[in-house]
């Protein structure tokens, strides 16, 4: 399993995937810094609530970008992990080796998970550092930031696992499109559920819940934003940042569900790959 994981990380390094991602991430963080730097600010003593709102707004905006960039990174890097390698003949000399198929699938996921961990960490802590540079006094405590980071990592791993599952059966393009559209639908359903007029038990709310079960990334994102805000739910409502905010905080059960979802996605990937021609 570790042979495959090593090869996956090796590929990310050797093919300059990490280098290109790193350079672009720096560019992204520079733009984000410009955005935060040009926000109107007052001394904390003059308007503490206004500054808190601005800080949380910046964090929420950064988190939103982080959410999308991580998703696209995860989808694009994993979408051809199995199918493209079978089509190109890369796996043909590997499968007859003394490796079981589960090792190949799980090894690939571990490799991608390590690469995702590095990427998410740089991006997330970069965003937090930029906001911290301007709003040091109003930022949440370190444990909340770490919890939010862990949720973003989990989001990347869940997307990686479900994209890997798709890559066992679908072509690279079909898989990439399917997962990207599902991800966008999950976000839209999650955004709909944030509006105050969407009543509990309504069809829209039911649809949002169903979509969050199909792909639990949106709940992880909103829980991460909530953690980043230090649990200040009221300031993250639709009045402040609209559908990107958090009116309804996903419970920790959803986080647990995401962990189970990840395990199931990997198990199904392994089972499907065992019966796939290579």
């Amino acid at each position: 399993m570790l042979h495959i994981a090593r090869l996956t990380i090796w590929e990310a390094l050797r093919r300059k995937i990490l280098l290109a991602t790193g350079v672009l991430t720096m560019g992204f963080l520079a733009l984000f810094w410009l955005e935060v730097a040009h926000q109107p600010r007052m001394a904390v003593t003059q308007n503490p609530l206004g500054n808190l709102s601005a800080a949380l707004g910046s964090l929420a905006l950064g988190a939103f970008f982080c959410y999308f960039v991580i998703a696209f990174f995860s989808i694009f890097s994993v979408s051809g992990a199995v199918s493209a390698e079978i089509e190109s003949g890369l796996l043909a000399p590997v499968i007859p080796r003394p490796l079981c198929r589960a090792e190949i699938v799980l090894g690939k996921w571990i490799g991608f998970a390590i690469v995702q961990l590095c990427f998410v960490s740089v991006l997330f802590f970069g965003i937090v550092a930029v906001v911290h540079a301007y709003y040091a006094r109003v930022l949440p405590a370190a444990p909340a930031v770490v919890q939010a980071w862990a949720l973003f990592v989990l989001q990347a791993w869940v997307l990686g696992a479900v994209t890997l599952l798709g890559s066992v059966r679908l072509s690279t393009l079909a898989n990439g499109i399917t997962i990207a559209l599902s991800f966008t639908m999950a976000f839209l359903a999650g955004a709909l559920a944030q509006f105050r007029f969407v009543a509990h038990g309504s069809v829209v709310n039911g649809l949002a819940t169903a979509m969050s079960l199909v792909l639990p990334t949106d709940n992880l994102y909103r829980r991460a934003v909530y953690e980043l805000a230090g649990g200040r739910q009221s300031l993250l409502g639709t009045a402040l940042i609209g559908p990107f905010g958090v009116i309804k905080v996903p419970s920790l059960l959803y986080v647990l569900y995401a962990v189970v979802y990840l395990a199931v996605a990997l198990t199904v990937s392994v089972r499907l790959f065992e019966y796939r021609d290579a």
């Binding site: 590929e11 050797r14 003949g89």
Partner: peptide
């Protein structure tokens, strides 16, 4: 029909 990682 085979291919080895071209970057190795």
């Amino acid at each position: 029909l085979f291919r080895y990682p071209p970057w190795l």
